[in-house]
Nucleic acid binder design. Sequence first.
DNA 1: CGGGACTTTGACACCTCTCAACTCTCGTGG
DNA 2: CCACGAGAGTTGAGAGGTGTCAAAGTCCCG
Lengths: 216, 216
Amino acid sequence: MTAMHAIRPHGTLRAGRPTALRTLDAGETLFREADAMTHLFELRSGVLRLTRFLETGRRQVVAFAYPGDIVGFPAGRLHHSDCEALTPATVAAHRRAALDGPGADPGLHDELREAALAEIVALQDHLMLLARIGARGKLASFLLHLMENQGTLRDGYMTIDLPMPRADIADYLCTTVETVSRALTQLRRSGAIRLDGIQRVVLLDRDRLAQIAGSD
Amino acid sequence: MTAMHAIRPHGTLRAGRPTALRTLDAGETLFREADAMTHLFELRSGVLRLTRFLETGRRQVVAFAYPGDIVGFPAGRLHHSDCEALTPATVAAHRRAALDGPGADPGLHDELREAALAEIVALQDHLMLLARIGARGKLASFLLHLMENQGTLRDGYMTIDLPMPRADIADYLCTTVETVSRALTQLRRSGAIRLDGIQRVVLLDRDRLAQIAGSD
DNA sequence: CGGGACTTTGACACCTCTCAACTCTCGTGG
DNA sequence: CCACGAGAGTTGAGAGGTGTCAAAGTCCCG
């Protein structure tokens, strides 16, 4: 359904009486891999990045989370990825204690289940993205997903602001910064997109971008 | 936790009074993408393969399911992947109706939630597998996972039988049959493994295989 | 205005994909 | 029982793409 790997339920978590709100600065860490998992977080504003590391030191960006997404799924007692803010962000924290034990909240359970099922779909979508050969196709696909979910209309053109550096995109697509940069240049030269500064991507020709995404 | 993408709960689904058992021949289809989702299946014996197709026709193997795994997660009303048996198999079918609606079974809900959370971990593990560069590393990693979860001791050597053809391994690792074959040959020549026929892989030197998996 | 981080571009080696031929395996039928 | 044939697997050669290393360019913020 959604492009990224965190879920975007139809609304926010309604059950589970709230919680503490927390604000994060850009670059701030929400939790780290192997941290004890004390809360489940619902992103209210900003963009988060979820990463895991390979033993070799290689980094994999598992997901980018946008408002409405939930991070910190309670699989076991420890987090299995790092979570950092790419922009200033606010999250609502739900106590893990509300999930298990005697005082468990059944409503929260239901929402968590739905959120987890949506996350599975999102992860499979990420897999399908990586299934493509060719960096052009992956990047084109990635941009199309972002356009559909986070695009805004500016001067009549669909536009997205990339809150993440090229290195994060590279690690999300399982490639390198240089290849991402080259692929961007190719998309630009093909007339499919235009770059407005480093962060802003303007969609000029959706069909062409879709064609590139589907070609390789 | 588990290597493959379907979950392996500690036991089988205990809640939700059973269900119909169904047997599958090798090659038989359990469900197809876009089929109406009527049941949730729990694999009792055999091995299943979950695949999805890219618009281009390219195929991605999303997961291999082993006994104890659950397939057919109810994300939406339609299946999002094809599911076929690689070997003769038996599954226990749980009615989807037991999940939603008034007669919903809360116990089944809980188990489904736990299973879904485990599936998320498995999918992330698949992602981390693909994060590696180099086909040798991916294949070595894949074999190590299989050894840990499905390996049996034969004549003092850890051994696995690969129920899937090379093409399935290729599509699971996002590469080609030829590359998988060449990578296998390299692992063989390095002394890490031995092939006993086409299906059987014998682990000769775990450390070497782990080293190859961690190198690239 | 200056400095540092990020991005882009270039050159080159290596790996992987593609296409093709060959081998192997195994089930089938003569 | 053997021969055959089809499918699967392996191996080879060549082209193209990508990772790596290096350098130049750009942007942003102090």
